[in-house]
Amino acid sequence: MELQLILLFMILGAVIAVEIEDLLSSVIAVGAVGLGLSLAFLILKAPDLAITQLVVEILCLIILIRATIKKDLPLVKDGRWLFNTLSTLLFIAFFLIFAYFALRELPRFGYPLMRVAKGYISSGPEKTGAANIVAAIILDFRAYDTLGEATVLFTAVMGVLAVMRKIGRIKDEK
């Protein structure tokens, strides 16, 4: 029951973040959604994810505020309101049809299949010696995932450095 309440809170925050006109308020509302997600992870018995989501949300909020602060924000008035809304709703309906077929195949909530994870749980303590099964999975059983993640992070840092650098950039106004 408390999970549904948290989810409703997140949906409310998301609607506010989407529909409000001030960009700073919008960013803060999406921060509230992220903190609600952290609480939901805690209820769903995932304390690793709760800690990570909490600190990542704070850093994400700082970066987004840095992007939006001190910018004059022109109020965007939409032309072709009807056409845009109709095409968006059509796309969402198309997505929902596929989501319906996917939801029929899912196991019931609260009864996971755990075909792979059963072996990890039973053989994890002997094979790795770690008490935290999640750490055992990401660093021992499935360490290739973590290696790929490190590569993606490295690429993102290089991308930010390349986009933001001053040296070697061609001057716009001659």
Binding site: I51, T52, I62, A130, N132, V134, A135
Partner: peptide, 20 residues
């Protein structure tokens, strides 16, 4: 990280937050 919740990802972000 191998005994309690946490680990390299969360700890790394907390260290970065201290410098920030």
């Amino acid at each position: 990280g191998h005994l309690s919740p946490g680990g390299g990802f969360a700890g790394g972000v907390i260290i970065a937050l201290s410098f920030i």
